[in-house]
Amino acid sequence: MAMNKSPLSLALLALLLGACASERVVLLPAADGSTGAVVVRDQQGELRLDQPYAALKRSLAANRPYQSSPAEVTERFAQALAAQPPRPSAYVLYFEAGGNVLTQESQAALASIRKEIAERPASEVMVIGHTDRVGNAELNDSLSLTRAEGIRDLLIESGVAVDKLEAVGRGERDPLVPTADDVDEPKNRRVEINVR
């Protein structure tokens, strides 16, 4: 085929090479220090990468596993990696019993959360309210939403620029510390703030 240089076969060759683009996959250690795995599947079967910098190069139907390195990843992927968005983060704020008043520590924490939200590009915030099991479930649904909306409003009032800000109440169904009914558990009177 390579000897035949007619325009048609050159075009065909280009097409085939296009469909057979060379590909590379490198498994990275995760930000938290763990390493997961990637399974690469094609018609011939599958290949598992599960060590840091385990890599696979595919070209013209051949798989070549190899050990990549931080230097190679930087060389080939620096721009892609530099564009990675900030990691999402999650915070928990706690309330005094029964109502919508933050504990003192949590009021202080809210200030630094506001700062963190403001520093993110195009931040999206989800506020999830929870209660302990004192009182009935319906009341707690409404209290958890009141708590979430209260925090949402505090964030809005403080003038933080947020692209999307949602508040939901989960009542007593997702306790941090599981308890029997009607137990006063401060750790369950909380809102989670998820920021991404």
Partner: peptide, 11 residues
């Protein structure tokens, strides 16, 4: 030319 399955990770 391939499909990658992910087992909780970065790559």
């Amino acid at each position: 030319t391939s499909i990658l399955g992910v087992r909780g990770t970065e790559f």
